[in-house]
């Protein structure tokens, strides 16, 4: 009875591993395959040929511009969101329900048909196909994540702690910097990483606004995949997975599931 349960449990764990790693494993094999004739189970010739090839070509440029965009998006989003999130968490800011609603819309409706028109607007101010245009379109989604997660973070800091500081003569600003901000820092870091990853992985907006002038890794991967450059696409896909997996392992212990659930949108 006890043995049977152990065996079943092992079998379940193995099945889960196959379901999760199965689709990903063919990426790994493809990335090293120099010759792979169907229907053989494994490639006839494996090697680092494609790795060395892609690491000097277009992909490197896509990787660089993707990182640059992600950094700019993250910094800008962080700077403008932290004060707003604090206000939303603490004060009866005017039109609060409307503001919250606006920051939820991009999650509740399909993005692509909207971004089609956003692209027109960006081209009209001559930012289509430019770095800043891509940054702006990324910020739409990034702000939604950031506002909601950071508001939750500030809400989780008990207001009484700040009231105690204000009670002792601190100003609102002082209590924000000396009490609320330090206590909210872990949550803000989590939220920042989320924004960074979102921008790194964003596809729809980048394809519409940036392509073909600004390429990031997801768009590059899409183009190589549909162009049947399977090795190049698989290597890009693996590289795209790295930041996410690193984050998952880093944040496993510290991250609350509400933040984690935000990653599902990417």
């Amino acid at each position: 009875m006890f043995m049977r349960r152990q065996v079943l449990r092992m079998a379940g764990t193995v099945l889960a591993a196959v379901i999760i790693f199965g689709p990903l494993s063919s990426l790994v094999i493809w990335s090293f395959a120099e010759k792979w004739y169907w229907p053989h189970l494994f490639p006839q010739q494996v090697g680092l040929f494609y790795w060395s090839k892609v690491l000097q070509g277009d992909m490197l440029r896509a990787l660089q511009s993707g990182f640059l965009i992600a950094v700019v998006v993250t910094v800008l989003t962080l700077v403008i969101t932290v004060p707003l999130a604090y206000l939303l968490a603490r004060t009866p800011i005017p039109f609060k329900p409307v503001i919250l609603m606006i920051f939820l819309l991009p999650q509740a409706f399909p993005q692509l048909p909207v971004f089609v028109n956003s692209t027109t607007l960006l081209y009209r101010i001559n930012q289509g196909g430019k770095l800043w245009g891509v940054v702006l379109i990324h910020m739409v989604g990034a702000l939604v994540f950031a506002v909601w997660t950071m508001t939750a973070v500030f809400k989780s800091v008990p207001e009484s702690l700040e009231e105690a500081a204000i009670n002792l003569g601190a100003s609102r600003l002082k209590s924000f910097f000396s009490v609320a901000l330090p206590l909210a820092t872990p949550g803000i870091i989590a939220s920042t990483l989320l924004v960074f990853l979102y921008s790194l992985d964003e596809f729809t907006g980048t394809l519409l606004v940036g392509s073909p002038f600004i390429l990031t890794l997801p768009v590059f991967m899409y183009r190589t995949s549909v162009g049947y450059e399977l090795q190049v696409a698989s290597i890009s896909a693996l590289l795209l997975m790295v930041p996410g997996i690193v984050l998952l392992i880093l944040l496993e212990r510290y991250m609350k599931s509400e933040y984690l659930s935000m990653f599902g949108r990417i």
């Binding site: 689709p23 998952l248 990417i266």
Partner: peptide
């Protein structure tokens, strides 16, 4: 294991 797909972008899932 079931948290892993959370961190894998849709495009990569499509390609895989």
């Amino acid at each position: 294991l079931f948290k892993i797909p959370l961190f894998i972008p849709f495009v990569v899932v499509g390609h895989a």
